[in-house]
C-alpha cells in the first residue's frame, strides 16, 4: 500500500532523512520507532508530499506525483502528533471534516457522509460523545476523535504520528489495539510509537530509525534487541523477554 524507496530530505544542508526504504502492506501495522530527531515525523510528512523530498514514493500502487488536487487524501489519512482544533468544535463536526477530500467545491455532506462519519465514530468508540466539544475531552478521547476524523476519509493507508504519547498505559493499549483491529479489516497502518515495549507488542513489523537512517527493520523480536536498543538509545536500558509471550520488554538497566 505504501512503498518508500531511497527517500531523502535535506533542509539547509542537514540530512533529515537519508535513503530510507519502508514498505507497508494492506492489513499490517508497521511501527516506526527511534529516538527524538531520528526522522520519523519527517518520513510521514515526506510520504504524503507535505514535505518535499528526493526518492520514490508509491501509494496504492501509484506514484505520489500522480495524485492531483488533494485526491491522495481519499486514499491516505494522516493523524499528526499534536493536531489542533477549536475547543468549541464538536467531535461530530471534526469527524465530518474528514469527508472534505471526497466533496467537491459545491457539494454538501449528504446522508452517506453522515453515515460514514457516524460509522467512523462508532469504530473508534467515540459516538457516545459525538456532540461534546473537543475542549471538554480527555487526552484519550481526543485522540480517538482525531482517529475517527481520519477514518471518515475512508483511507486504505493510515499514517499516525505518536497517537499514544501522553496517554496512560491502558489508553495506549486501547489505541494500539484499535489500530490492530483496523488493520485486520484491511487498512495498512504506519504508526510512530515512542514506547518500544508497546510497539513490539502491537506491531507486525518495526522500523528502527536513527539520525535519518533505518537501523533495523523486521519482526519486533529482531528489531528490539539489546544490541540495537543500546546502540540507538544508550546503555541505560535492557531488553528482556516477556515471561508469558516472550515479546521483548524494554526495562531500565538497574539491578
Amino acid at each position: 500500500m505504501l512503498s518508500v524507496r531511497g527517500l531523502s530530505v535535506t533542509v539547509e544542508g542537514r540530512r533529515l532523512l537519508d535513503g530510507v526504504d519502508v514498505e507497508v502492506a494492506a492489513g499490517e501495522v508497521v511501527g516506526l520507532v527511534g529516538p527524538n530527531g531520528a526522522g520519523k515525523s519527517t518520513l510521514l510528512r515526506a510520504a504524503t508530499g507535505v514535505r518535499a523530498a528526493q526518492g520514490e514514493v508509491a501509494l496504492a500502487g501509484r506514484p505520489l506525483a500522480s495524485y492531483r488536487n488533494g485526491s491522495l487524501f481519499r486514499t491516505v489519512a494522516v493523524v499528526q502528533q499534536m493536531p489542533e482544533a477549536p475547543d468549541a468544535m464538536t467531535v461530530q463536526e471534526l469527524v465530518l471534516l474528514g469527508r472534505h477530500p471526497h466533496l467537491g467545491l459545491l457539494r454538501r455532506e449528504g446522508p452517506r457522509d453522515h453515515a460514514i462519519a457516524l460509522a467512523s465514530m462508532q469504530r473508534v468508540g467515540c459516538e457516545a460523545f459525538a456532540q461534546r466539544m473537543l475542549g471538554t475531552l480527555s487526552g484519550g478521547e481526543r485522540r480517538r476523535a482525531f482517529i475517527a476524523r481520519a477514518l471518515a476519509q475512508q483511507p486504505r493507508l493510515l499514517l499516525l504520528d505518536e497517537p499514544t504519547s501522553g496517554l496512560d498505559a491502558d489508553a495506549q493499549a486501547q489505541i494500539l489495539a484499535l489500530l490492530r483491529a483496523l488493520a485486520a479489516e484491511g487498512v495498512a497502518v504506519l504508526v510512530v510509537v515512542h514506547d518500544l515495549t508497546f510497539a513490539a507488542a502491537y506491531c507486525d513489523r518495526l522500523v528502527l530509525m536513527q539520525q535519518g537512517r533505518v537501523v533495523a527493520s523486521g519482526a519486533p523480536a529482531q528489531v528490539v534487541t539489546q544490541e540495537h536498543v543500546r546502540a540507538v538509545y544508550g546503555p541505560h536500558v535492557r531488553v528482556i523477554p516477556h515471561p508469558e509471550s516472550g515479546a521483548p520488554l524494554v526495562v531500565p538497566a538497574v539491578s
Binding site: A115, L118, A119, S120, R123, Q154, G186
Partner: peptide, 9 residues
C-alpha cells in the same frame, strides 16, 4: 463501506 462497519444512522 471500505473496511468500515456501518451502524444505524
Amino acid at each position: 463501506i471500505r473496511g468500515l462497519r456501518l451502524g444505524r444512522v
